[in-house]
């Protein structure tokens, strides 16, 4: 990983984890639940037929927007969930990821390689932040983001 010793600021690419799996927009929430279990993740990017990022579905979204409303997860498409879409560019400064997550109170952020076909190449979650940030940054982030359920 290109973490130079020359004092270059960390980029989003430096701190993200790679190997992101998507759920297709037309796949069901039942499929999404199985994939979350299999991968041991709490959220999945939603990809459209053009393989571009369409949104993000979390385990909580499935509970609140599907189970609580009495709908069958097998008959609800992943693409019908997912609110506002937030992401960062891979080469943006890592603090931009932190700011985006703080402002929008989100715990997981997709990373897009804008120069290379606008592809989804990774995710940044709270565990990546905890590993890479200063104590003050983590405390500020925790105070703002974890106020959300």
């Amino acid at each position: 990983m290109a973490r130079t010793t020359g004092g270059r600021p960390l980029t989003c690419r430096d701190i993200m984890h790679e190997g992101v799996r998507c759920i297709g927009a037309h796949e069901s929430l039942f499929e999404a639940a199985k994939l979350m279990r299999e991968l041991n993740v709490g959220s999945l990017p939603i990809c459209g037929d053009d393989n571009r990022l369409k949104g993000l579905v979390t385990d909580r979204d499935i509970v609140v927007e599907c189970v609580a409303t009495g709908r069958d997860p097998a008959s609800v498409e992943a693409g019908s969930l997912g609110g506002a879409l937030h992401w960062v560019a891979a080469d943006a400064d890592a603090t931009e990821a932190l700011e985006t997550m703080e402002i929008h109170r989100i715990k997981r952020l997709p990373v897009i390689d804008v120069a290379d076909g606008h592809r989804l190449i990774g995710m940044i979650s709270e565990s990546e932040l905890a590993k890479n940030l200063t104590d003050e940054q983590i405390a500020e982030f925790a105070g703002r983001v974890f106020a959300a359920p």
Binding site: S125, E126, S127, A130, A139, G143
Partner: peptide, 27 residues
Amino acid sequence: ISEADVARHLPDNQVAEFAGMIYSTAK
């Protein structure tokens, strides 16, 4: 007591240690 309560009531260094421990396995 949730992570938000911890973040609200404790000093930065304790929150950071807490976050490091809890989120090391966060997904």
